[in-house]
Design a protein around this nucleic acid. Structure first.
Lengths: 111, 111
DNA sequence: TCTTCATACCTAGACAGTCTATACATAAGT
DNA sequence: ACTTATGTATAGACTGTCTAGGTATGAAGA
């Protein structure tokens, strides 16, 4: 999939991944790739700025970790991040519903 | 709904609307608003450039029409536009499926 | 008559977020 | 030594939506 249509959905998906527990950026990229069946293979230039944005917005907190001699920045949801994660899922559902309605009814169960 | 997440989906939705027959830009905006239950209220600065893009790409053809003293530009799908409309729907389905998978399984039937 | 609203199109520039390309660094395998 | 995988980061390009402004007609109401 070519990915400009990701616009506006990346943040929500990152929050969704972090809802299952703290993780570092590289790990989130892997998890996104895994969950989406390879569909979403985020560029580094996408994921790191997104995480910084989210942290600036107070939705994430981070701490440095060293594992096997390599350092990682591990992110976790703040309280407002948890709320945002729920909110983003709701937004996605509404968006999905609206787009489905535009594309028309019948053939959509095939998704 | 705030609409940056529309990015990349507008073209497909316009093609979807035109799959039901020729229509002019203003009418498409109305139809999009109607089908989406008011969710998608496209700015004119969004819809007209999008239509021009689509026509430049050879997916649409247009002709001027005068109705009640007002002129309209009526768009219709070209042959490649029809193919693109099908393709875009398929792309949307794949995208939807992938995002759903990222957001996690259970609660998604609620959409 | 004048104003306002709905219809109808258009565009320049702002803006936001993704992508490309590059850089740095460690560990493990060949 | 070299490559691959892990891991983070940023500048600048790019794309597409949004803001805000413009043009124009017709109908309704003050």
């Amino acid at each position: 999939m070519k990915i400009p249509e990701l616009q506006g959905h990346v943040d929500g998906m990152l929050l969704a991944v972090l809802s299952d527990g703290p993780l570092h950026g590289y790990g989130m990229a892997e998890e996104l790739r895994r969950r989406s069946g390879g569909e979403f293979d985020l560029a580094e230039g996408t994921i790191y700025p997104a995480l910084h944005r989210l942290e600036s917005a107070g939705l994430l907190t981070s701490r440095w970790e060293v594992v096997g001699g390599r350092r990682r920045r591990v992110y976790a949801l703040s309280n407002s991040g948890k709320a945002a994660a729920v909110d983003r899922r709701t937004t996605w559902l509404a968006f999905r519903c609206a787009v489905d309605a535009v594309f028309g009814g019948e053939a959509l169960e095939a998704g």
